[in-house]
Every structure is written in structure tokens, then in C-alpha cells.
Design a protein around this nucleic acid. Structure first.
Lengths: 207, 207
DNA sequence: ACTTCGACTGACTGGACGTTCAAATGACTG
DNA sequence: CAGTCATTTGAACGTCCAGTCAGTCGAAGT
């Protein structure tokens, strides 16, 4: 990692710029983010940005988005409780994921999460990085579901499929609020979601 | 509606331009769509577009997107079978919706559906139109679920919440394929989705 | 044949924005 | 203080693209 004094300073500057970029993205959206605005937000001149991001705007924005997402995903990793009973572990994960994602909804909104995963061409660098990030996250979520399935707490659904659907259900709830279609408190959503999902995957035979 | 000869011609031209715009959007994405490209695709000159869309590019693209979505939603309305037994009606709707949306995945991908609903500011004209379109659609889906709940086929969940989650689960499946995370046939997704959702909302007590 | 009309064209304009680079600034040293 | 070097600056440049408008062309009218 960084060691010498210069490298530390450089890393600090890079971080400042990335944070400014994320603020601008949050305010103006991905497409509405210009180098001028980022420079103004970071209180430095336009040219300075090119010292730290010589590859240009696209590289900067991609880095900002990637790091932002990585941080959010790191948060969700921290909330796992492997020692809990499987079903309780799933429940805790679902609610925790909901809480974390909803606390970052501004950024997620501006970033237009789904778009970015979907839109980038197969060869695209950021697209690949995001895909692997998502993939890693889904493996983690799937492992929790798989453990529950092994323990007999839920039925043996395809864990990756279920994990994906679960995370999408979560972002869907947030999106619904952003659109203005939800008139109930957020906590209700979390409970309703958990209920819907758990019943969907639970072991006991229905009907 | 249109009556005179001129109005019919005009409507025809407008439609040609909108279709060209949708093709370009499908190929280059929303942001990558320029008036020049639309003009080239429609095999007319740039200026001609401004004869039919004097309000400019944004208006044109919004109309293209709105009409495209309206057509898709009209399709889903046609597949309802109110005379079927409630649970069968739900099942048919879920599978039909899946089939229709997946047949339009190119357009939906390019349009970045979620983005457009989420990103537009509350006062924005297209945003409002899309929201009301979505709202109408959700009312329709919710009415199917509500009928099933009244018939006792599913438990009395909040029908609008369930309808929203259902439609998002469907688009999520498609997105998963576009990202390249799915390795199973599409039909499997439809079945797995139906299974997950029905168990989630079904009447029989689980556990 | 001449005129009128209006749909259509596409070169042009102006502004926005990414990127560059010569000059200014400041920090550090002998 | 002068000299050296790294960092920072922002005016200038090139490109892209929405939007304009003077001019073309064919059809219909007289």
C-alpha cells in the first residue's frame, strides 16, 4: 500500500477528488457531472484533476462509483452473524441489508445502479469490475442462504438466484419510495419484504 | 383524433420519427442518441425533425420512450383472463408479463427503465407521465392480486406493494440475464419466479 | 408557362465540455 | 536571497451536438 509521505498526500488528494465527485454525482446525476463542477466542489482548478486522474473524466467517475459501491458492500459484510441459527441469520441479513442500502439511497439513486450494471458493454472495464463486485456480493448472500438450506430452515432453492432476487427486491422498495408510490413507513417495507421473501423460500410446504 | 388528410400524413411522419428514435435508443442508449443519428435512421434531414418536434430533442426522446412503454403496457393488459379462477389468473398474469417484458428487453435495457422513473425531478413533465403510467399499470396488477385475495387464494397482502415487487422481480430476472449472471434457460427463471412469488403470497400458513 | 406554397434540406452557429499546457505559485535548499 | 523543482492554475483549443434558417424542389393552382 501507500508508504512514503508523497504517496500518502497523493492518496489523500485522490480521495478528496473522489468524494467531491460523489457529491456532484449525488446532486446532478451521472450524466450531469462535469469536470468543472467536480473541480468547483473540490475547490481546486480543473487542471489539477488531470494530475491525479490523467486518464480523464470517465476514469474519475468510474473510480468514484466503484469505490462508493465497494464501501457500501463492505458495510453489509460486517453485519453477518455466522454463529446465529440459520433462519435468524437470514432475517438479520435481510433487515440489515435493507437498512444499509436505504441509508445510501441518495448515492444509489444518482448512480442508477441497475443501469450501470446493465448498460456497459461486455468488454468495458468498469462494467467488468462492477460485475465482479456484484458477483462477490451475491456469493456472500448466497452462502448465507445456502447455509440456511443445509440447516433445513429454507427449501433448497438456487441460492444465487434467490440472492439476486432478494437484493433486487430491496432496491425495488427503495425505488418505490423515491418515485413517491409508497405511503407507509420504511420499516413496514422492510418487514413486508422479509415476510414475502421468507415465505417464498421457507421450508414448510404450503398449500 | 386525426381526421384530415394532412393530419394523417403528419401523424404517420411523427410515428416514423418516433420509431427511428426508439431504434437508435435501442442501439446507442438514451444518452448516446443524437438528433443526427435519429435523422439518419429515419432517412430524413435534421431540420425535418424540428418540423414535427419543434420543442426539440428532449421532447422527441420523451415521446419515443413514453409511447414505447405505453405499447408494452397495453400488451400486458390484453393477457388478463378475469373469468379464470383467481390463482390461475395470477399465474397466467405473472408468466405472461414475464414473456412480454422479455420480448422487449432490448428497448427496456436501453431505456434504463428504473432510472427514468427515479431520476426525474418531481415537477418534471415526463416523470409525471411515466409515474402515472406506472401507477395505472400497478393498479391493474394489484386488482388481479386483490381479486385472488378476496377469493382466499392468497393472503391479504398490500396489493400495490405486492404488485410493485412482482414487476420488479420480473425485470430483475431480465437484468440478471443482461448482466450475464444467469446460466439457466429463461423459462426456468419464469417458473422459479412464479414459485417464489406464489409461495410468498399464498394463503396456506407456513412454518 | 408562371406563380405560390409548403415540405424538406443541410451547412452553419453558438454553447457546452473534455483536455492541454505555458505560466504562476509556493516550498525547499545552499 | 537566488535558484530549483514540484504543484497548481485557468485561458485556450478542439470536438461534439442541439437548434436555426436561407435556400431547394416538386406539386397544385391559375
Amino acid at each position: 500500500m501507500a508508504s512514503s509521505r508523497e504517496e500518502l498526500i497523493k492518496e489523500y488528494r485522490v480521495n478528496e477528488i473522489l468524494e467531491a465527485a460523489r457529491r456532484v454525482i449525488g446532486r446532478h446525476g451521472f450524466e450531469g457531472t462535469t469536470i468543472d463542477r467536480v473541480a468547483e466542489e473540490a475547490r481546486i482548478a480543473k487542471g489539477t484533476i488531470y494530475l491525479y486522474f490523467p486518464k480523464g473524466k470517465v476514469d474519475l467517475l468510474h473510480a468514484a462509483v466503484f469505490e462508493g459501491l465497494r464501501a457500501i458492500m463492505a458495510e453489509t459484510h460486517k453485519l453477518d452473524r455466522p454463529q446465529d441459527p440459520p433462519l435468524e441469520r437470514v432475517r438479520h441479513f435481510v433487515l440489515g441489508q435493507f437498512r444499509i442500502l436505504s441509508s445510501h439511497q441518495d448515492f444509489l439513486k444518482a448512480f442508477e445502479l441497475d443501469k450501470s450494471f446493465v448498460t456497459f458493454a461486455p468488454g468495458d472495464a468498469l462494467g467488468e469490475k462492477l460485475r465482479s463486485l456484484l458477483s462477490e456480493y451475491l456469493d456472500y448472500a448466497a452462502s448465507i442462504l445456502e447455509a440456511a438450506a443445509r440447516g433445513g430452515a429454507i427449501r433448497p432453492v438456487d441460492p444465487k438466484f434467490a440472492a439476486f432476487i432478494l437484493s433486487e427486491m430491496t432496491t425495488a422498495c427503495l425505488r418505490r419510495r423515491l418515485i413517491g408510490l409508497a405511503d407507509t413507513p420504511v420499516e413496514d417495507d422492510a418487514e413486508a419484504l422479509l415476510d414475502l421473501f421468507l415465505r417464498g423460500v421457507q421450508a414448510a410446504p404450503c398449500g
